[in-house]
Amino acid sequence: MELLVWIGAGISVIGLIGIVWSIFAVARARKAGLDDDALRARMSRILPINIGALLLSILGLLLVLVGVILT
């Protein structure tokens, strides 16, 4: 079950990288000085990536939890 912990940690790190990327993408979009419609369009492209990264992070942490409980 130790392998399950390491796999979960890896998935969680991938999700964390996606969350950090989306934070920087939103910051770049705000600094670009876009009008309201263009900013909304860019945010609507970033939002699914952010939600997917959050889901990956949660699933990875759940795998770590299951691996620790089963060990």
Results as ranks from 00 to 15, higher is better:
61 L>A: 11
10 G>S: 08
6 W>K: 15
50 N>Q: 12
64 V>Q: 08
52 G>L: 11
37 D>I: 13
27 A>R: 13
45 R>S: 13
66 V>Q: 04
71 T>F: 08
6 W>P: 00
20 V>Q: 05
41 A>W: 00
1 M>Y: 12
1 M>G: 12
44 S>R: 11
3 L>V: 13
61 L>S: 10
25 A>W: 11
31 K>R: 14
38 A>T: 12
52 G>P: 07
39 L>R: 01
5 V>Y: 06
58 I>N: 06
49 I>N: 03
38 A>Y: 00
44 S>A: 14
30 R>F: 10
37 D>N: 06
47 L>P: 03
12 S>N: 13
26 V>K: 12
39 L>D: 00
18 G>R: 11
57 S>H: 09
21 W>P: 03
50 N>R: 09
70 L>S: 07
18 G>I: 06
8 G>L: 01
16 L>N: 07
28 R>A: 13
24 F>G: 08
46 I>E: 02
30 R>V: 15
12 S>I: 00
34 L>Q: 00
63 L>E: 03
58 I>C: 08
23 I>A: 10
48 P>A: 09
54 L>V: 08
10 G>F: 04
70 L>Y: 05
13 V>G: 02
58 I>V: 15
3 L>C: 03
37 D>W: 04
15 G>L: 02
28 R>H: 10
11 I>H: 03
3 L>Q: 11
37 D>R: 10
53 A>V: 09
41 A>M: 05
42 R>F: 03
55 L>I: 15
56 L>Q: 02
35 D>K: 01
10 G>T: 02
13 V>W: 13
28 R>I: 00
3 L>G: 05
18 G>H: 05
20 V>P: 01
3 L>T: 11
31 K>G: 09
37 D>C: 01
60 G>V: 06
45 R>I: 08
23 I>F: 05
61 L>V: 09
19 I>N: 05
54 L>M: 14
61 L>T: 10
13 V>T: 14
56 L>A: 15
36 D>Y: 04
49 I>L: 13
71 T>Y: 05
8 G>V: 01
35 D>A: 00
32 A>F: 01
45 R>V: 06
68 V>P: 02
37 D>S: 11
41 A>G: 04
16 L>K: 07
54 L>Q: 12
17 I>Y: 12
61 L>E: 02
12 S>M: 09
38 A>H: 12
43 M>L: 12
34 L>S: 00
14 I>R: 03
47 L>R: 13
49 I>T: 10
25 A>F: 10
4 L>I: 05
5 V>F: 02
54 L>R: 09
56 L>T: 06
3 L>E: 11
33 G>I: 01
7 I>R: 11
13 V>E: 09
45 R>T: 14
46 I>D: 02
68 V>G: 02
58 I>L: 15
33 G>L: 00
62 L>A: 14
9 A>Q: 03
63 L>N: 04
54 L>P: 02
42 R>W: 01
50 N>D: 08
8 G>N: 03
47 L>F: 08
52 G>Y: 02
13 V>A: 15
12 S>Y: 02
51 I>L: 15
69 I>S: 01
50 N>F: 11
58 I>M: 15
48 P>M: 07
53 A>K: 07
64 V>P: 05
33 G>P: 01
15 G>C: 09
53 A>L: 13
10 G>A: 14
40 R>L: 14
55 L>F: 14
18 G>P: 00
52 G>H: 03
26 V>W: 06
16 L>E: 10
23 I>H: 08
58 I>S: 07
64 V>T: 09
37 D>M: 09
